[in-house]
Design a protein around this nucleic acid. Structure first.
Lengths: 161, 161
DNA sequence: TACTTTCACTTGCTGAGGCAAGTCAAAAGG
DNA sequence: CCTTTTGACTTGCCTCAGCAAGTGAAAGTA
């Protein structure tokens, strides 16, 4: 199996295999590790933390649900149900967009911001331990470049198909 | 917020934020994109594909469940239930390890190997499109190095804690 | 104005995964 | 030997996510 033809052969060559295995481990085990830490220390998932964090940096702590879903790489039902959970705990308030009744605006409440701030330190520390600490500055740069390209490709796949 | 202290500050600096956002998109949206393709074309998940693929390259197409779980970054219950599904479709056979009755051996059947071979081309093409095509050879190398380090750290976290 | 289309969001149903508890086999200790 | 401990695997309960179908608001069209 000489990996001469690159995008045509239906298999990966050895170098590609190694990269692919490492990427699989990262996409499977890293979210699991983050979920365990956040669930244990804060009772929320990594996904839920990301939603709260993204809302917290939005103008007025408010976003349309559809925009929030896109930047959080979420489907609409998934976000809708997360919002149900958030509203039940008074971390987020939903209301129709006054300018266009089809949209719904989500706003982070003070309690929601408090929850985020309280959960952040241990979570950020975990991210640093697992992702940043093992890498040199140059490796972080390279990783950022490569992941940004892959992320853009995946996003294009999700949207335009 | 000058990001001078690295592992101590409870926040990420701007460069770290960019890398972290790209990594989040990859770990969330990439598995989702792979799952969609495999579910649509083969009726299995990315995780299930990985299990079958790993078994297929094992000696005698056979592994202990605990070893298989480790290399697939799976918990034991998760793998156990995947095996229930595989056995129901006759893709895998389980039997007690003759040498030590505590272990269970899983063997890929001919039907299971057939399923894998049949699913591989489109899946591998998807992986190449989303992960390899957007990168130059040098970028792939750098990505492999960084991901391998992160993967090792995450694995250590899972096992030894 | 009425009808259709489009779009944002929600709901119902089903399947998968996590955790904690249970089962069973082998080893360890008395 | 018998008991206790360890370790591998499975089971039950619950939550969460995906999909497809449903609702309701705005825009386009006759």
């Amino acid at each position: 199996m000489m990996g001469l033809m690159d995008t045509q052969s239906p298999w990966l060559d050895d170098d590609q295999q190694d990269l692919w295995q490492a990427l699989l481990t990262v996409v499977i085990a890293l979210p699991a590790a983050l979920d365990r830490q956040l669930q244990r220390d804060a009772g929320i998932s990594n996904f839920e933390y990301g939603v709260l964090a993204r809302l917290s940096v939005a103008d007025e702590s408010t976003m349309r649900l559809s925009d929030l879903a896109r930047v959080c790489d979420s489907t609409q039902p998934r976000l809708s149900k997360a919002m149900d959970r958030f509203e039940a705990r008074d971390w987020v308030a939903r209301r129709p967009d006054p300018g266009d009744g089809r949209y719904t605006l989500a706003t982070l409440t003070d309690a929601g911001r408090h929850k985020l701030v309280q959960s952040a330190p241990e979570h950020v520390a975990q991210v640093k331990r697992l992702v940043f600490d093992p890498l040199s500055a140059a490796q972080r740069r390279h990783l950022g470049v490569a992941l940004t390209r892959i992320a853009a490709t995946v996003r294009r796949e999700v949207e335009g198909s």
